[in-house]
Amino acid sequence: MKKITIRPEIIGIFLIVLVVGTGYSKVCAEQQEQVIKMTAKKFEYSPKEITLKKGVPVVLEITALDRLHGFFCPDLQIHADLLQGKVTRIRVVPVKTGVFAFHCDIVCGDGHEDMVGTITVKE
């Protein structure tokens, strides 16, 4: 029986291709996900009402325009600090339907308590 020998460097190249390829697939998948652009400023989010589909991943891209804000949706376990002038990307895969409130959880001024919104998740 003919013995097949695989040289170690070929295995290495194969693994590199595999890893890069997997990463590339992931990047492609994320690129295909819906992106929802949002802004946060005293004392409002825009948009402040978002509708998502259960099980369908989306990426929230939130820009804090004027200062540090927070984005906290406890029921969907989404929590992020939004740094001023930066785009904060949050990948969300809703696992349940309903209407879920989110709010700014970093005190930002007189009106902070009105900085709220909702995420509606449908089937």
Partner: peptide, 10 residues
């Protein structure tokens, strides 16, 4: 006494 407010993050 515990201060959980001077950091605006709570």
């Amino acid at each position: 006494t515990i201060d959980n407010v001077s950091d605006p993050r709570g």
